[in-house]
């Protein structure tokens, strides 16, 4: 390692320390119920990669995925504590999104196993995982353009009788349930301040509104864990605050949140636990304060900033909805 590298690392460390103190002051001023609960649960956990948690909701073992010859993900062991906001960070192409895709059933790993809430869900298809209570959103928002906002949200409800083809033409069978679902959807739209868009096509919404819609839709599934892939990407600063508020409120209600995010300020301010990926591996995990001073994390970021991005390893900017 060169001397120059050392110095800049030192500088960054210092900067981060200052930032941390400032943020800590803000966080201290109003710790929410969920934050306190999460902090207690994680209090005695060692900040080392692969560390065991008190009450893990998601446990992954030896999950690996290669694209061609390039290693995208190679996670030996990872646990996510129930009721926390856990952030996945790391430079572009570190394997965060791929890991997301793997555990939610949207991509098949080369090897590995993982369980959710005590159930082994290795190789389970994506829709079954969602029904089990682990729901995800996407980096590029997938609003269902030519469905109305209300329809988008109503779609999220599970166990709908009228979704069975043979029953669908018989309105009386599903009418009551449909009304209940509509009512619940309206409540969610109210909560996310989307009621005014209720009967508009989702395609007419702004980027930020779509992010909110996606979250509302995910909540209709009644999940115990929500996985958010870059929830703040492309959202204007005014909406960012409100989105953050929603995420924290969900945690306070007892939900587990895992998110991939690039904005360090956001991550440091809302996460209870942070997992850092680099080149497909988990190189560090810990509380925000641990991560901020973690040597490996800083090297990974600086290293990534220096080296030219490896094209094969970088996610395509525009990923169509191909399977």
């Amino acid at each position: 390692m060169s001397g120059e590298h050392e110095t800049s690392g030192e500088e960054v460390l210092h900067e981060r320390e200052e930032l941390a103190q400032a943020e800590h002051a803000i966080a201290e001023s109003s710790p929410s119920v969920g934050a306190v609960r999460a902090a207690e649960a994680l209090a005695d956990v060692e900040p080392v990669p692969g560390v065991a948690k008190l009450d893990p909701i998601l446990v992954a073992d030896n999950v690996s995925r290669h694209f061609g010859g390039v290693r995208a993900v190679e996670v030996d062991h990872l646990e996510v504590q129930r009721g926390t906001i856990t952030a996945l960070i790391g430079p572009n192409g570190a394997g965060k999104s791929t890991f997301f895709n793997l555990v939610t059933g949207f991509d098949q790993p080369d090897s590995g196993s993982w369980s959710f809430d005590g159930t082994d869900i290795t190789g389970t298809s994506a829709y079954r995982i969602a029904r089990l209570g682990m729901v995800r959103t996407f980096q590029l928002t997938k609003a269902l353009m030519r469905l109305t906002t209300l329809e988008n949200v109503m779609l999220g409800a599970t166990a709908q009788r009228g979704e069975r083809m043979l029953v669908a033409p018989l309105r009386m069978v599903w009418k009551r349930q449909e009304r209940d679902i509509e009512q619940r959807s309206d409540e969610l739209l109210e909560r996310f301040r989307l009621s005014h868009m209720r009967d508009e096509y989702a395609g007419t919404m702004s980027g930020g509104q779509r992010k909110l819609l996606e979250m509302a839709r995910a909540l209709m599934v009644n999940p115990s864990m929500v996985m958010l892939d870059e929830p703040m990407a492309g959202v204007n600063p005014a909406l960012t605050q409100s989105l953050l508020g929603h995420i924290q409120a969900l945690r306070d209600e007892g939900m587990t949140i895992v998110l991939v995010e690039h904005d360090m300020d956001v991550i440091m301010s809302i996460s209870d636990w942070i997992v850092c990926f680099a080149e497909g591996k988990v190189i560090a995990e810990g509380r925000p304060s641990d991560i901020r001073t973690n040597r490996a994390v800083i090297d990974a970021y600086l290293g990534a900033r220096r080296a030219l991005p490896d094209r094969a390893d970088t996610p395509k900017p525009v990923t169509e909805d191909e399977t």
Binding site: A126, R136, F138, L147, L155, R217
Partner: peptide, 16 residues
């Protein structure tokens, strides 16, 4: 119709 719009989204909401 949700499958028509985006099948990944439909899948993420538990639809087969």
């Amino acid at each position: 119709r949700s499958v028509r719009e985006d099948e990944l989204a439909a899948r993420s909401l538990g639809k087969n």
